[in-house]
Simulated assay, not measured.
Amino acid sequence: MISEFRPARRRGLSLGLYFTLVAALSFFSLTKEAQAITGPHTVVLDAGHGGFDRGGIPGQRVAEKPMTLDVAQRVARKLRAGGYHVVMTRDSDVFVPLSVRVAIANGLRDAEFVSIHFNSATRAGANGIETYYYRSDSARLAANIHRQVVGGTGTENRGIRRRGFYVLRRTSIPSVLVECGFLTNPYESSLALQSSYRERLADRITSGIIGQSPPYNRPVVAGLTHVASPIGGGYNDFVSPAPERPSFSHHARSSGRSGRHHSTSSSKKKKSGKSKKKKKSDDN
């Protein structure tokens, strides 16, 4: 009995050690995976609009939603090739509410959120690159991306602006929104339609995310009011945000149910008991 018991005991110990090692390796693998997802090299890429929300303003010839998705997918490929973990708020032509985009970002720790858009205006001559941030811990990321995009594409520098857009105000991680030119501008829309230009935009956005030294930057366009840089270092791209553009008043509400990256609110009130006046305000 003793001679038969000892081998069985050894087999039991061997099996126990085997399962312990398997459990330890599984735990290590899951831990590494969790670190990859929530570590400092995680980037949430938010391609603006999608689905029934084509982006832009009424009557705009070039839709915004396919442009933002294409650039975001290019950035994702470049970041993944560099070892970054990338989460896309949308990876196809679907509508994703702003609240869901924010929830995706807030579900990750130690990550960064980059929302990619193209601009639009009722004035066809409006052109250039704008970058937005809201939280103070997002200013450096905004500056890095902005300088890369402006310096690498040669377009007008419309400055870095602080504004309480929904996806910037409601996220709990560093978050920026970059406007990659005006699709209502004939020249910039023709560039956006070129695959080579969207590839260049993706290169520049990627370089800004990973913190590469920016190329020579063009000064901001005349007429903009400079504000003190919140990050120091001689950055002179920070400007005061312009008033809310009337052409955007039909877009997203503060609930985040629409696909527009920013939100406005409007209310009607009587004036002198006779006329009604629409009030517009930033959703700060």
Rank of each mutant, 00 (worst) to 15 (best):
K280W: 00
R200L: 12
Y216D: 13
V176Y: 04
A23M: 01
T206A: 14
T184D: 06
R54N: 10
R90C: 07
A8H: 06
V62I: 14
G83Q: 07
S255L: 07
I173P: 02
Y197E: 10
S190T: 09
V71Y: 08
S240V: 11
V220P: 00
A47Y: 04
L141S: 01
S207M: 09
R163A: 02
I104L: 04
N284D: 14
N144W: 02
V94P: 01
D110A: 07
N217V: 15
E179H: 05
R260T: 14
K268Y: 08
D282C: 06
V114D: 08
P241K: 11
Y187Q: 14
E33V: 15
R77F: 00
F52Q: 09
G232M: 07
R101P: 01
I116W: 09
T155C: 04
G259D: 04
A222E: 14
F113M: 12
S138L: 06
T42S: 13
E244K: 00
P186H: 14
S190N: 10
T89L: 01
N157P: 10
S207F: 07
E244Q: 00
R161Y: 00
S281E: 06
L45I: 06
P186Q: 15
H251G: 02
Y132P: 09
G211D: 01
S258A: 15
E130L: 06
E244Y: 00
Y132H: 13
G181T: 10
V221A: 11
V114K: 08
A63N: 11
R109S: 12
R198S: 07
I37T: 12
G39D: 08
H41R: 14
K277S: 09
H226T: 11
F248D: 12
P215E: 15
A63P: 05
